[in-house]
């Protein structure tokens, strides 16, 4: 790890001003950033920790949605939305291991947008709104490819608001080593229609499987997806699975998610 300056602001405004410094990098729970820094593959000059900002930690529910502070840990989300949004709680409860869940944050995960992370599927599948220190961004506009998001330089995710669907389920098939999603599918049945978000599979990062959504909008059942699978040409192919395998898993997991929705 290279040397760096460390800032731990108390307010979003202080954080935003700290982020204006040359070489500044926001730090959530550090579950990706710190290992990367230890390997000397990242060298921020200033680390701006977001976990000391009171207003950015915690969960509140109102008007049919849950709003989660950007610096809220996975463990807290798993506990606090267990009744209001069990599918999201289950997703959070199955990220990494207890040490990761007690450090990693929802804002950190969404800002990093790892193509195999779970939260991008949860946010996109739920039709969440990502709120920053500058604006609200719809999930449909937020995810822009592997590790790419709509965030501007220095922009901070302060909270994420998840509308609670009528039914929802997340199916994750573990990559055997990292236990990130080899493929993960989040299915949500909402008053505005079904949303299917897929993580882990595509070269373009998390995406909505619109063909499946169309099929499920007319018939929300496994049978509606019979014979359907993802497009192998767009899929990641690596030592853990070919594109064809991932495309196949997209279909299997989507059917299982629909079945689990009941």
């Amino acid at each position: 790890m290279y040397n760096f300056e460390f800032a731990k602001p108390k307010t979003v405004e202080e954080a935003a001003s700290a982020m204006a410094a040359e070489g500044a990098q926001a730090l959530g729970g550090g579950q990706t950033l710190l290992p990367t820094m230890k390997q000397r593959l990242a060298s921020p000059e200033v680390l701006v920790s977001l976990t000391g900002i009171d207003g950015m930690v915690g969960v509140s529910a109102s008007g049919g949605s849950v709003t989660i502070g950007g610096a809220t840990t996975h463990a807290q989300v798993a506990a606090d939305v267990a009744e209001s949004y069990p599918a999201l709680a289950a997703l959070a409860a199955n990220i990494g291991d207890p040490a990761v869940r007690n450090r990693g944050t929802v804002g950190g995960s969404l800002a990093n947008n790892d193509p195999a992370a779970c939260y991008p599927a949860g946010a996109l599948g739920s039709g969440a709104t990502i709120t920053t220190n500058k604006r609200d961004i719809a999930a449909d506009d937020y995810f822009q490819g592997m590790f790419e998001t709509a965030l501007d330089e220095g922009e901070i995710i302060t909270s994420v608001s998840f509308p609670i669907p009528q039914k929802a389920n997340y199916q994750k098939f573990d990559q055997p080593a990292s236990r990130f999603a080899l493929v993960g599918v989040f299915v949500a049945k909402t008053p505005d229609g079904v949303r299917v978000a897929v993580t882990g599979a595509s070269n373009e990062g998390v995406y909505r499987w619109t063909a499946a959504e169309t099929a499920l909008n007319s018939d929300f059942s496994q049978a509606a997806l019979e014979g359907m699978s993802g497009d192998a040409d767009d899929m990641i192919s690596d030592l853990h699975g070919s594109g064809a395998y991932r495309a196949h898993l997209v279909g299997v997991l989507t059917r299982r998610a629909v079945a689990a929705c009941g």
Binding site: P176, H240, G241, S242, Y245
Partner: peptide, 8 residues
Amino acid sequence: VSPARVWA
């Protein structure tokens, strides 16, 4: 004998 190999 990974899942991908069994499936293949």
